[in-house]
């Protein structure tokens, strides 16, 4: 709100430090563990003949980058969704983004037998964007008349519709089911084959738009009438927010598949740490998202050797209990 409080700045610095640690772990841990010195060497003096360096540069580095982008995007998108719908249970999936991506992926598998990671990733983004646009139009937000309830309902309805179509398609064709059931859990393992640079740019644009809308969303949090009398053009604020959510979620779902729960969890942890101002929350959730995602990814690599547990599973599996613990402690420990 009033610039960054000193405490907020400290919290953000601590989160950034923790994220750096998680990033290092993400480079070191796996079926072929690397010592910190080895990982560092592979980064600064890569040796193409050293298989350890190849693993790091071709597998773990893209995977780390995808985790950073997808995690930050989901965290920030969750903040935006909760702010614009004024609903503490809102999460990016509510806008129909994940259902749209699912439908596009399944349709691709059903009609054209698409099954490689790069093509699925390319299908997921337009699917997500179209679904979000449809929710926006159905919710009538373009005319400034759409309240948070209409938007939420439009998202829920479209999600139900698209998921029933997905169900119908995968029932008819087993190949489509096979493709979809792996994709839908969410994974960073195929990051190297996904359009990393492009999606990073899309997410960055979404993130900057989100930060620019922060003050207007702070006004919107006080209610529609209060926001407008504070000079916020609420129709445009909603439109901009949904554009940012679409960019952020579209990038995340394209890079990692529909990772569940992170977009719900990160905003709540952020609010507990830095208070209800939208801009500080965006920054905090943008750090918490990748922190949780990278830790879940690392845990998934060592949980069931020699295999891997997909990051979408680990995020909810580890994040759920931690989230409940934190939420309970925050309630109890809230200053009187």
């Amino acid at each position: 709100m009033t610039g960054l409080h000193a405490r907020t700045a400290l919290t953000l610095a601590a989160l950034a430090a923790a994220l750096a640690g998680a990033a290092l772990l993400a480079l070191m841990v796996g079926t072929r563990p690397l010592a910190p010195a080895q990982a560092w060497a592979a980064l600064v003096q890569p040796d193409a003949a050293d298989p350890a360096h190849v693993v790091l540069r071709q597998l773990r580095l893209p995977r780390l980058a995808a985790g950073l982008v997808a995690g930050a995007a989901l965290g920030m998108a969750g903040v935006l969704m909760q702010a614009v719908t004024r609903n503490p249970l809102a999460e990016p999936g509510l806008l129909g983004v994940n259902a749209g991506a699912s439908f596009a992926v399944v349709l691709g598998a059903f009609l054209f037998g698409v099954n490689d990671s790069a093509a699925l990733s390319a299908l997921a983004f337009p699917g997500a964007a179209l679904a979000a646009a449809a929710v926006f139009v159905l919710g009538g937000a373009g005319r400034g008349g759409a309240g948070p309830v209409r938007l939420t309902l439009a998202g829920a309805a479209l999600t139900a519709l698209l998921m029933s179509l997905v169900g119908a398609l995968v029932l008819v064709r087993t190949e489509a089911l096979e493709v979809w059931r792996f994709w839908v859990v969410g994974s960073l393992a195929d990051a190297g084959s996904r359009p990393l640079a492009m999606m990073a740019m899309v997410a960055l644009a979404g993130g900057l738009l989100a930060l620019a809308l922060g003050a207007a969303l702070d006004a919107l949090a006080l209610g529609e009438e209060a926001a407008r009398s504070l000079g916020a053009r609420t129709g445009w604020v909603r439109a901009g927010t949904l554009a940012a959510v679409t960019a952020l979620c579209g990038a995340a779902v394209s890079l990692a598949g529909p990772v569940a729960f992170l977009g719900l969890m990160a905003p709540h942890l952020a609010r507990a740490l830095v208070g209800p101002g939208v801009r500080p929350m965006l920054l905090a959730a943008g750090l918490i998202g990748p922190l949780v995602l990278l830790l879940a990814d690392v845990a998934g690599r060592v949980a069931l050797p020699p295999g891997e547990v997909r990051v979408g599973v680990m995020t909810a599996l580890l994040g759920g209990p931690v989230f409940i613990l934190v939420a309970r402690r925050m309630r109890l420990g809230a200053p009187a």
Binding site: M1, T2, R86, P88, A221, L222, G223, E225, A226, S229, R271, G275, P276, G277, A334
Partner: peptide, 14 residues
């Protein structure tokens, strides 16, 4: 307005 909403956890100053 008649029923403005105070965001959860916000302080008076903020």
């Amino acid at each position: 307005p008649q029923a403005p909403i105070a965001p959860e956890g916000i302080t008076v100053g903020d």
